[in-house]
């Protein structure tokens, strides 16, 4: 059961939990930082082995058909004629898994024509759950390389007023190139730190937050150990600051979709818990075809019970990247 702790005691239990011998031994065996494995044990119990084993299986490539430019039936036919074997992903309306391909799917003529985008399934799911509304004013606060931004434009048939924000110079070119390649025009790209945005009163915000990337270990095994434990506080702080900014600039009654490609509590439940305690926002129940309820408790810390409306995706359970997804509504004044 949880106990009442002050902010700093709570932070210590979240960021500085002790590492068990079991975690140390598993971390050594699978090549992880031990704090990640200890967290897995605390969250998953005996299932930890299932996750560690599953993370050894490379992630298949998945694509999103861009039905703004081509019908998905036509794309299916064209890829089949090229000898590319694909399979529909049941919970993603435009998602396909590449089963077999004689070519690099990131370099086919259909790719160059903008008929599809290479995007992981969890990442696609975030935007379906966001459910962007046609003609609305939307801010995508960490936009590059443009997977979710192009999906927002696709689902709304290029009707929204989308402001795509990206700070990193090296990534912003890809964002521009992807949105242009896929045929969209109803967007503005800003090269800035989203925490400094001067815009106000957007109808919806997507914050796919910069993260530790622990959710994509299957794609990038270096993530098992590339981050020192001390980084988790910095990442959490950035996420918390960005989410606070999102709350500042969304209109009263407007929605924020917060996502982090990570299995870490520090980047999910704890970020939401903190804003629920301090800001005038509420969670909206995420109605997802896949996923587990977010955690209401970690290492003796009980989170605001509204966190249960958010969801978690686990690689070994859902076949996706690890993800935390939450929807918030800013209260009317």
């Amino acid at each position: 059961m949880g106990i009442n702790l002050n902010e700093s005691e709570k932070e210590n239990k979240i960021f500085s939990y002790e590492i068990s011998n079991e975690a140390k031994s598993l971390a050594e065996k699978y090549g992880y930082s031990d704090y990640i494995v200890e967290r897995y044990i605390k969250l998953l119990g005996e299932e930890v082995i299932d996750l560690l084993e599953f993370n050894e299986i490379p992630m298949p490539q998945t694509i999103r058909c861009n039905d703004f430019l081509v019908s998905c039936d036509e794309l299916e036919k064209r890829l089949k004629n090229k000898g590319i074997k694909i399979q529909k992903i049941p919970f993603l309306p435009h998602g396909y898994e590449i089963i077999e391909s004689p070519y690099n799917v990131g370099a086919t003529h259909e790719y160059l024509m903008g008929y599809y985008y290479l995007q992981d399934p969890g990442s696609m799911l975030v935007v379906y759950l966001m459910n962007p509304l046609k003609n609305s004013f939307i801010i995508d606060m960490a936009s590059a390389p443009g997977g979710k931004a192009s999906q927002i434009l696709q689902l709304t048939k290029d009707s929204v007023k989308l402001v795509s924000v990206e700070l990193k110079k090296a990534r912003i070119k890809a964002l521009r190139s992807n949105l242009q390649r896929m045929g969209f025009s109803s967007y503005i790209i800003l090269e800035t730190d989203a925490r400094k945005l001067s815009l106000k009163n957007s109808d919806m915000i997507l914050l796919d937050s910069p993260s530790s990337g622990e959710g994509i270990i299957r794609k990038d095994p270096k993530r098992k150990s590339s981050r020192p434990r001390s980084d988790m506080r910095k990442i959490h702080l950035l996420q918390y600051q960005l989410l606070n900014k999102a709350i500042d600039i969304v209109k009263p009654g407007g929605e924020i979709t917060y996502a982090a490609c990570s299995t870490a509590i520090e980047e999910g439940e704890f970020v939401i818990d903190r804003v629920l305690n301090k800001r005038n926002v509420d969670t909206i129940k995420v109605d997802s075809p896949i996923g587990d309820k977010a955690y209401e408790e970690f290492n003796g810390i009980v989170f605001d019970d509204r966190v249960k409306n958010c969801i978690r995706l686990w690689p070994h359970k859902h076949g996706t990247e690890g993800f935390f997804i939450c929807k918030l509504r800013k209260e009317e004044n």
């Binding site: 912003i172 521009r176 025009s185 109803s186 967007y187 503005i188 790209i189 800003l190 090269e191 800035t192 001067s198 815009l199």
Partner: peptide
Amino acid sequence: SLESIYTTG
């Protein structure tokens, strides 16, 4: 309303 944009439209 924006001071500086990277690209648009």
